[in-house]
Design a protein around this nucleic acid. Sequence first.
DNA 1: CTAAGACCTGACACTGACGTCAGATGCAAG
DNA 2: CTTGCATCTGACGTCAGTGTCAGGTCTTAG
Lengths: 131, 131
Amino acid sequence: MRIGELASRTGVSVRSLRYYEEQGLLASTRSTSGQRHYTDDEIERVRFVQRLYAAGLSSRTIVELLPCVDSPSEQNSDEAFGRLIQERDRIDRHINELSGARDALDRLIDANRAHRDRLTTRRPQALPGTR
Amino acid sequence: MRIGELASRTGVSVRSLRYYEEQGLLASTRSTSGQRHYTDDEIERVRFVQRLYAAGLSSRTIVELLPCVDSPSEQNSDEAFGRLIQERDRIDRHINELSGARDALDRLIDANRAHRDRLTTRRPQALPGTR
DNA sequence: CTAAGACCTGACACTGACGTCAGATGCAAG
DNA sequence: CTTGCATCTGACGTCAGTGTCAGGTCTTAG
């Protein structure tokens, strides 16, 4: 398939796909005229990359752990494997941060809701004399 | 305290503190010569803001829900309260995304470790307790 | 008083993933 | 063949939080 189809099937913009290739995240074969062609496998690849992006990894970091993705059977450089572990742990810590922030918001929500409820129980739903 | 002390006590750069003020996230009183002065309360405020930044909220968004932080006892605009709920849910969804990514990395780690173990079982010394 | 260091404002630089535009070429349909 | 859309490369724009520099003022120790 060509780049437009890959874009629409993954929900990723054409611009981004070209960027991924530029960063070494995505490969394509080229027709004689220079147009990119992809196999269905690339769909998975794009989704995987998207997922890591969403998890806060940079393209540089993703590139560094691609050896573990593309040939886990070979003895990949310890560097790549180390990155993998490192990023997993970073995500773990990030999840904890987010949980903390969510809890803080939850407390705020409760505090605010308490006051709101006091209003709405006295005057059920909406002020009658407004306007 | 002055801005330098607030910076060192929160671990946030002086530049950032001024930026926070510019964005309406942080208040300061000014001495006659124009220098910023803070009370201890601002330490908490800065940490709160940092926490929300870490959770992916933009300064604009944080500003929008500050009414709920600063005066939860008043009936704040539904808009601010709505934002609060909305951001809480966004964080929740983000946590799920991250969990998915982490699981994907875990699977990769296992796959790679399997091959590595085959090497390391021949030559002991391995990674003993690396989960 | 003086020197050093903290602080002030204002401005520009940077990063990274992408949007967007321009100008050229490719390709399928009428 | 032509028309029109897809694609190509290359370049510049964006956004947000922050670094950093310049040129000036304030504060405090000695």
